[in-house]
Simulated assay, not measured.
Amino acid sequence: MVSRPTPPRPPLIIGITATFLWFGFLAGYLALSWSRIAILEPDAFGDFLAGWFAPPAFFWLMITVWLQREELAAQREELARSTMVLEAQSKRVRSISFLASTSFTRSGCPTISIRS
């Protein structure tokens, strides 16, 4: 089976676009307010950075949940398909075992019992 490259998924496109916009806005804010930011105490500067980096981190957490939900839905579909195939195989094995047992019985050979 040849694997084909998958197209980018909408949550990733949304996340990357929003992240670039957010950090572009941050760069603009830093350019306009550098004189006030440069004089911040270390603890205030840390609060400033936490305030700017927390929203993208939370946004990517939401995107991760979105992607996992899609993956789980795909896994459920695949499991349903596998279950249908397994049931079909089980029916086929039962019919083959029935035919085999009746043909052995008619021919006088000992019967073989396959229990499911």
Rank of each mutant, 00 (worst) to 15 (best):
M1F: 13
V2D: 06
R4G: 05
P5N: 05
T6I: 10
P7D: 08
R9Q: 13
P11C: 09
I16P: 03
I16Y: 05
A18F: 07
T19R: 04
F20V: 03
W22H: 12
W22M: 01
F23K: 00
G24L: 05
L26E: 02
A27G: 04
Y29G: 00
L32K: 03
S33E: 09
S33M: 12
S33C: 08
S35M: 11
S35D: 13
I37W: 02
I37D: 05
I37A: 04
L40N: 01
P42I: 08
A44G: 03
G46S: 11
A50N: 11
W52Q: 05
W52E: 02
F53H: 08
A54K: 08
A54Y: 14
A57H: 10
A57M: 08
F59K: 01
L61M: 14
M62K: 00
M62L: 15
I63C: 10
V65A: 12
V65G: 06
E71L: 13
L72E: 11
L72I: 15
A73I: 07
A74V: 05
Q75A: 11
Q75R: 11
Q75G: 02
R76Y: 12
E78C: 09
A80H: 10
R81N: 10
V85S: 10
E87R: 13
A88H: 14
A88F: 06
K91I: 09
K91W: 07
R92I: 11
R94W: 00
S95N: 13
S95V: 05
I96V: 10
I96D: 15
S97R: 07
L99P: 00
L99F: 00
S101N: 12
S103L: 13
C109G: 08
C109F: 15
T111H: 04
S113R: 09
R115G: 09
S116P: 15
